[in-house]
Design a protein around this nucleic acid. Sequence first.
RNA 1: GGGCUCGUGGCUUAGCUUGGAUAUAGCGCCGGGCUUCUAACCCGGAUGUCGAGGGUUCGAAUCCCUCCGGGCCCGCCA
Length: 570
Amino acid sequence: MCYPRFMFLKFKDEVSSILSNAVASAGFETDDTSLNESPHADISSSVAFKLAPKYRRSPKDICEVIYNNIKIPPDSYIERAETAGPYINFFVSRIFLNETTLRVLLDRENFGNLGYKGKVILEHTSANPDGPLHIGHIRNSVIGDTLARILKRAGYDVETQYYINDMGRQIAVVVWGLSNFKFDKTKKKDHAIAEVYINANKSLVDEKEHSPEVNGIMKEYETGNPETNKKFKDAIDTCMEGIKESLRRMNIHHDKFIWESQFVRSGSVNRMMDRIRKLDRAEIKDDALMVDLNDMGIQKSLVIQRSDGTSLYTTRDLAYHEWKTGQCDRMIDVLGADHKLISSQLKAMLRILNLKEPEIVIFEFVSLPEGSMSTRRGVFISADELLDEVEKAALLEVRKKRPDTDEEFKKKVASFVSIGAVRYDIVRVSPEKATTFDWAEAVDFEKQGAPFIQYAHARACSIIRNAGDEGIAFETFDPNVLLEEQEIALIKKLSCFENAIDSAARELKPNFLAIYARELADAFNQFYRYVPVLAAEPEFRAARLALVDCSRIVLANALDTLGITAPESM
RNA sequence: GGGCUCGUGGCUUAGCUUGGAUAUAGCGCCGGGCUUCUAACCCGGAUGUCGAGGGUUCGAAUCCCUCCGGGCCCGCCA
């Protein structure tokens, strides 16, 4: 038996095509069927409004004429169409509902794969290795990792990269600091590096005579002094060990770590500068190489090469993107709002050079109630501290709610609940929203966050488990008996998973999926409350168990795509 | 000063790209529900000049303009 690949998306396509035909046979012309989601229907069209001015007739009138030309074939995903004043409302059919359940049970953990093809390189986090990740950095990490998971589920071959800015002044400060200040071996390594970095910065401000030493270190690294190289590598490896540990704790993995210095060493930065020098728009000003980007809407000239001949961050970033261009179909960079200007300069330069431009996902800053964070000044809340505190609060919660369980179970639950809560809180809000960190909110488990969704999944597992214990089978079932309002609402919601993945992948908006997951959990909880499963008559019981299994699968897929554990028990 | 961006009930927030039916949801508040598959749950209620003003439109939270407020950026830093 062969089921159509997409559920809700296919329904939408079918409505669109049937409506287009109806519009045409009614004698109207438009390429926009104006389909919208609506509380009044499964999908709704306001096409009559669009046609009204052109044909000088009332929307209601036009709507009526189009409606009379709608022909729904048998076996359609569309049950019926209705007019409601100027609107045409469409409703899904029994076939659609039945096939949705069968589709989920067939595809299982692959449900949601849209068959998109191509290689994507997604860069995220890329925090400077001068200290631990803080709560601003992990907004980048969580958005980036969730996007990578969404794109993977949609079918893309995704490679994630962490770009290590090892040639910046801040790393030179760390290297200088390591030979002048104590490295606290009792601390987690990235935190110990931060301590050195903060002390070094303080003394560089107080005792300005050390500043040339740092400049010297930087210069030696750019030219490639072996002894200096080793110092840099040791410092960075040390810090990255701690950063990777924090990322691992949050279920975040990078496929590759790319050092910006490799592009200097390989000569590709020099080749890039030579190539740019030959451009008509390039000019030498005070011995520095500049490019005029005024016609690209960027007033500021971009400096490509310093007057001493060395490269700049942007130049190296150009070489990095040139390198990526040859290896993928799409490049995505997740960057903080401070990179808005520089990323548009980068894109403009790549366009001029006829190279692939990255798609940039910008997220706004996370600040503390007292102001913005700074690793350099030591003003930040680390990801480790946040996770520790949230985990502590979660443990209290588990003790309260599951006093019957052993300590090991409680700790395990506290761990995945806290990580889920942190990830979900970050990913549920639009990246373009600037946020202020709030401890009370971070440790609040009352709100409908990740634990709400995880709990719905655990409930579904529990029913399946109980059915197994009682020897109740549901391999064969009749989906036609799923007629309760909550059952139908739940199946419709299951069918929208593909839609959620599709729009999140298309628009690079991970928050779409976060909202979907919450709505799915909501639909399942209502079903759970009103529709008995194990206590129902056998034919209903089998179909409902199948629906519970579908819910379990899609909840698990949604949680997995959000990088959050889908627990069997909590 | 210039550029970009955000402003939606007490708080957090969806929708804005592509204008359409009573503006989404959560927290908190008020009231109800555990002899029933895990109550980290469910149900009901109160709470909105969608920052302000103007414009376009049959119709604006959504598009345009002005203003106000917050954030970010404007280095031969990264």
